[in-house]
Amino acid sequence: MVTKISIITVCYNSASTIRDTLRSVADQTHPHIEHIIVDGGSSDETVSLVQQYRRHSGPLVSEPDRGIYDAMNKGLALASGDVVGFLNSDDAYADTNVLSRVAEVFAMQTVDACYGDLVYVAANNPNRVVRYWRSRPYQPGLCSRGWMPAHPTFYVRRQAYQRYGGFDDSLRIAADFEICLRLLEVQRLRVTYLPGVLVRMRTGGVSNASLRNVVRSNREVAQALRKHGFPAGLPLILGKLASKLAQLRWSLMAPRV
């Protein structure tokens, strides 16, 4: 049986970047893709570009929401695929075979989730790599120490979301960390690391957009850890900083992709 993959793209006034995202999904060689678009009620040309460039069927919602994680939960509720992944409206797949590789992993019934590597690219030049996010095979305890896989590379069986829930939208910046913590560390999903770059992500993400957001992100990570009974304090923050420095070091040695 061929794995059906639901890709959820959340967007708002994304006309300047979403064309590349849509083409990236359209060019995938995997034959069974559902591309769900959840738009926050854009006032620019986002919706018309979606209608023009989206090549795979799937629901299109355009209405106000309570933030990105509320929108992601709307997408989860609409998904019908065996596996669910998220691709932001300013990101693109690294090549045309990414979803085929993901589907091969999920052909093994012993796998509940997978993730891979990601490169950050310049916002005004998506061909220029500025940082390399190299992941690693998951070991128990990684998430509880503040580590997480790159969320745009994270794929999970839809049944797991149905069983364990979607995003905690009371968190405004770090709900992606919380859901990785919940699924990998608390529920112990069987997860596989898929080496290689899966996504090209433009710089300028919300969590790192300002010092205020960095502080808030760390607070929310600590909140998520405490929610699930894990300690949160200075060692966590230092560990996260060390992880960021490791990512920066990789950028200097990153392969061309």
Rank of each mutant, 00 (worst) to 15 (best):
D70L: 03
F167W: 13
E220L: 03
Q109K: 14
A123N: 10
N125Y: 06
D65H: 10
S243C: 07
G85A: 01
F86S: 03
I33S: 08
Y132K: 12
V102I: 07
A15W: 12
V10K: 08
R66P: 00
G40A: 12
Q51N: 05
M253T: 06
A175Q: 07
K227H: 08
T153D: 14
M253D: 12
P64N: 08
V191P: 00
Q187T: 00
L248Y: 06
A242F: 02
V221A: 01
R200D: 13
A107Y: 15
R182Y: 08
Q223L: 05
D65Q: 08
R190N: 11
V214F: 15
H30W: 15
V2C: 04
Q159D: 09
Y12R: 10
V84G: 00
V25A: 06
D82F: 06
D117R: 11
K4C: 02
V156C: 04
A232P: 00
L194S: 03
S100T: 03
E220Q: 07
A246T: 01
S170E: 13
V206I: 15
E63Y: 10
T192C: 08
G229H: 12
N218V: 00
D20T: 04
A242D: 01
Y120Q: 09
V25I: 14
I18L: 14
F106N: 04
S135A: 11
S210M: 10
R200H: 10
F230E: 07
D112I: 04
N88F: 11
L225V: 00
L183H: 05
Q109F: 11
V102R: 12
R131H: 04
L211M: 10
R256C: 02
L76R: 14
L238F: 13
V119L: 02
Y115A: 06
L87H: 02
R200Y: 11
F230A: 00
N125A: 09
I37F: 11
D176W: 02
S207G: 05
R131K: 09
D176F: 03
G233L: 11
G75F: 07
L118N: 09
T110Q: 14
Q139W: 14
M1R: 12
G40D: 15
K240S: 02
V215W: 15
S6M: 10
